[in-house]
């Protein structure tokens, strides 16, 4: 008899103890779990937030426009920062520009960085500048300026170009924006040295 009483007492206690233990384990899921701070997970450190706010940095902007002659311009950049000293000036990083001339020519330009100066109406591109023209030339130079109103493009320093006419180096380059109705000309200036490899003659 006594042995059976001990058994029922143990089972009685277990009937109370086990559910309490289950409740305790379950509560750790909610009460004791790590609190997730939503603000902590944003990719900006506090100092960068202040920095961005102070510099008003814009990421992946693009702007497009047209000249009065009807040429279309599209400029995009990885990052643009206004010049705190002079609001008319903007610095852009990793810049790409696409120009469609009204009379049919086209040109694509890329550069590591560019200074856009609203006042002077000019963009000053530098750093591994590459110009690809609709007529098949690929031109590399260190610096390029683009007049934002007439779209006249000037490379003041040495340029290297490859195209159907061969590979050439020149002292400078200029794209006349076709003002005054004449055709848009890409002019290599200050001495041109070109080498053309004739295609192997089949005969």
């Amino acid at each position: 008899m006594a042995r059976r009483d001990r058994h029922t007492r143990i089972v009685g206690w277990l009937k109370i103890g086990l559910p309490l233990a289950a409740l305790a384990i379950l509560s750790t899921l909610f009460l004791l779990s790590r609190r997730i701070e939503p603000a902590d997970d944003l990719p900006f450190a506090q100092v960068e937030l202040e920095d961005r706010a102070r510099r008003q940095q814009i990421t992946r902007p693009s702007l497009s426009g047209a000249t009065d002659k009807g040429d279309l311009v599209e400029v995009s950049a990885a990052e643009v920062r206004p010049d705190t000293a002079d609001p008319g000036r903007v610095t852009a990083m990793d810049v790409a520009a696409k120009i469609g001339f009204a009379d049919g020519g086209s040109m694509q330009v890329r550069a590591d960085s560019a200074q856009f100066d609203q006042g002077a109406g000019q963009a000053d591109l530098s750093g591994d500048v590459l110009v690809a023209t609709g007529t098949g030339q690929e031109i590399r130079t260190g610096r390029l300026t683009i007049a934002l109103d007439t779209l006249e493009v000037v490379a003041p320093g040495e340029v290297r170009s490859t195209g159907p006419e061969g590979t050439l180096t020149a002292g400078g380059m200029r794209v006349t924006g076709g003002a005054g109705g004449d055709d848009v000309q890409l002019v290599f200036t200050d001495g041109v040295k070109l080498v053309y490899e004739p295609q192997r003659s089949e005969d």
């Binding site: 001339f101 009379d103 049919g104 020519g105 086209s106 040109m107 023209t133 609709g134 007529t135 030339q137 195209g163 006419e165 061969g166 050439l168 020149a170 794209v175 076709g178 055709d183 848009v184 000309q185 890409l186 002019v187 290599f188 200036t189 200050d190 001495g191 041109v192 040295k193 070109l194 080498v195 053309y196």
Partner: peptide
């Protein structure tokens, strides 16, 4: 080819 300038009509 050597020349003072080369102009390509776009």
């Amino acid at each position: 080819v050597d020349a003072d300038s080369l102009s390509v009509n776009q």
